[in-house]
Design a binder for these strands. Structure first.
Lengths: 136, 136
DNA sequence: AGCGATTGTTATTGCTCATAGCAATCCTTA
DNA sequence: TAAGGATTGCTATGAGCAATAACAATCGCT
C-alpha cells in the first residue's frame, strides 16, 4: 500500500511515541506501574513535600485526575501525605516507595539506552534538542 | 520544581507528541476531522479500492475499530464502498471526500512546516530519520 | 477583615482502544 | 472438487484515560 504519511515528521512523531510508549508500558507494568505512576514517583522523590497540584502542573495533569492516581500510589503504600497547612498536603515516598521508584528508574534508564542505540549514531544527539523545541 | 524527566528522550518524545497532536487535532477539528480521519482519507485517496482491513493494518488500527471510523466518513459522504467480491469492499473518496482530504492535506502541510521551523536548523534534518529508527 | 485565588475532592461524561465472538466468504491444497 | 483454515466485516462490551463542572475549605494579598 502506498503510504505518504511516514514522510511527515509530525506523523512519525506520533507513531514513534505510540510504539515506544507501548514498550515502556509493558516493562513498567511488570512492577505494577504505568508511565504516569513512575513519573509521579520520580518527581516526588526529587521534590519531597511537593503537592498534588504542583505535580499536576508539572506533568500537565488536571487536579481532578491526580486524585485516583495518588490514591493508587497511597493504597500501595508508596507515598505518604503530610499536611503542610490546613489546605495543602506534602507528598513523600515511603521506603517501599523509594524501592519502587528505584526499580522504575532502572527500567527507564535501560529503556532509554536501548532507544538511543536504535538511532543511527549521526542522528542520535539531535533527537532530544529537536524534541525539546517542539514542546518546551 | 526539580524535574529530571525532560532530559530523557523517551519522555520528551511522549510530551512532544502529545503537545503537537493537541495542536494538529485542534486545527483538523475545525473541518470536522480527527487525525485518524485525515489519515484514512489520505490513504484511501492514494489507494482507491483499498479495504478496511488493509487500512487497519497500515495504521495499526484493529478491524473492529475501523467500523465506527468508516461509518462516520461514510455518513459524511466522504467515502463510498464498492463490493470487490462477496466479502471485501473497496473504499473510494467521493468528490466531497476529495475536497475534505485536500483541506486536511493543506492543514497538515502547514502544520508540518511550522513544526520544522520550530526546530533549530542544525537539528532539523535529523528528526525524521531518528524517529523512523524508533518505530519502523 | 474581606475577597479572590488555590487546594483537594466528587461526580460525570466522552473518547479511544482492546477483546471476544460470529456469520459469511475467500483461497489453498489434498 | 471438496474441505478446512484464513480473512473480512461487524456487533457488543468493557477498561482506561482525560476533560469539565461544581463544591467546601482554606490561603494569602490588600
Amino acid at each position: 500500500m502506498h503510504d505518504p504519511l511516514p514522510s511527515l515528521p509530525g506523523y512519525s512523531l506520533r507513531r514513534a511515541a505510540n510504539a515506544t510508549a507501548a514498550e515502556l508500558s509493558a516493562r513498567l507494568g511488570e512492577i505494577g506501574l504505568r508511565q504516569v505512576d513512575a513519573s509521579v514517583l520520580i518527581l516526588i522523590g526529587e521534590n519531597p513535600d511537593t503537592t498534588a497540584s504542583a505535580l499536576g502542573r508539572q506533568l500537565d495533569i488536571q487536579r481532578a485526575n491526580m486524585v485516583p492516581l495518588l490514591k493508587k500510589l497511597e493504597d500501595a503504600e508508596w507515598i505518604d501525605r503530610n499536611p503542610l497547612d490546613g489546605k495543602s498536603q506534602g507528598l513523600v515516598l515511603t521506603p517501599q516507595g523509594q524501592d519502587t521508584r528505584d526499580a522504575a528508574l532502572a527500567i527507564i534508564e535501560t529503556f532509554e539506552n536501548e532507544l538511543l542505540e536504535r538511532i543511527p549514531p549521526q542522528h542520535r544527539a539531535h533527537l532530544l534538542p529537536a524534541l525539546d523545541a517542539l514542546w518546551r
